[in-house]
């Protein structure tokens, strides 16, 4: 247990000091102690991060996609178009398997992202699933630095066309080609091994899953 000895340097816990800093309620005893204790005062100063935070990448849905419903209707009407550029072939909406589409909001404009299309850092993206049967879907991304992340965790979606997935994601500033992997499965599944495999370059389509792959370019 040597490695995990108590390392906190003050008398009052970090939680109490953070509560005090953020104006939450703490006991009078804690407040009085911190006011007169140099060690706790120093520790409280050390909790403050004086640096700007990056933009919140996941965007509250009430703020964006005000026109998504209308946009989705237009997209559905234009369904003869090729909607994905799979890396291992071509998938069209006429196929029976489930598939994803990606929408992007740039400033106030929401549009569907066509294969290989360029998007900008700071744009918000969102996915919509089309499937004949209820299923579970997740979306992974492999960014230009080779880092895999979860854009949409495993989410149950109803059968239907262009069912919007619940999470929108703000793109970060890393430019280059970003690969997207959408995974459909008939039941809940563990996404982390797939994310790790994607990052490790060992991603193999799991048995029983339908996988959509495509890419877009971030500039």
């Amino acid at each position: 247990m040597n490695a995990i000895a108590r390392t906190w340097p003050a008398c009052v816990s970090a939680l109490q000091l953070d509560k005090l800093r953020m104006g939450e309620s703490v006991s009078d005893e804690v407040r009085a102690h911190v006011a007169g204790c140099a060690k706790c005062g120093e520790a409280m100063k050390g909790l403050q991060l004086d640096e700007p935070l990056p933009a919140l990448r996941v965007v509250p849905l009430r703020r964006i996609w005000p026109r998504l419903v209308a946009g989705l209707s237009v997209a559905a009407a234009a369904s003869v178009l090729l909607v994905l550029r799979p890396i291992d072939g071509v998938r069209t909406k006429g196929e029976s398997g489930p598939f994803l589409e990606m929408y992007v909001q740039h400033l106030d404009l929401v549009r569907r992202v066509e294969p290989g299309e360029a998007v900008a850092a700071g744009d918000a993206i969102r996915f919509a699933a089309t499937s004949r049967v209820p299923s579970y879907v997740a979306v992974l991304s492999l960014d230009p630095r080779g880092r895999a992340s979860v854009y949409v965790p495993v989410t149950e979606v109803r059968a239907g066309r262009d069912v919007a997935l619940p999470i929108a994601t703000r793109l970060d500033a890393t430019v280059g080609e970003e690969r997207i992997v959408g995974v459909f499965y008939g039941q809940q599944f563990d996404l982390e091994p797939l994310r790790a495999a994607l990052e490790g370059g060992n991603f193999v389509e799991p048995g029983g899953c339908r996988v959509n792959r495509w890419s877009f370019v971030k500039r």
């Binding site: 995990i4 000895a5 108590r6 390392t7 906190w8 340097p9 003050a10 009052v12 816990s13 970090a14 939680l15 109490q16």
Partner: peptide
């Protein structure tokens, strides 16, 4: 529990509450 107690310096009561 280890993080809260050893790294954050919380008392057992604080850890219990969290």
């Amino acid at each position: 529990a280890v993080v809260y107690h050893h790294l954050d310096g919380m008392t057992h009561a604080e850890v219990a509450e969290l």
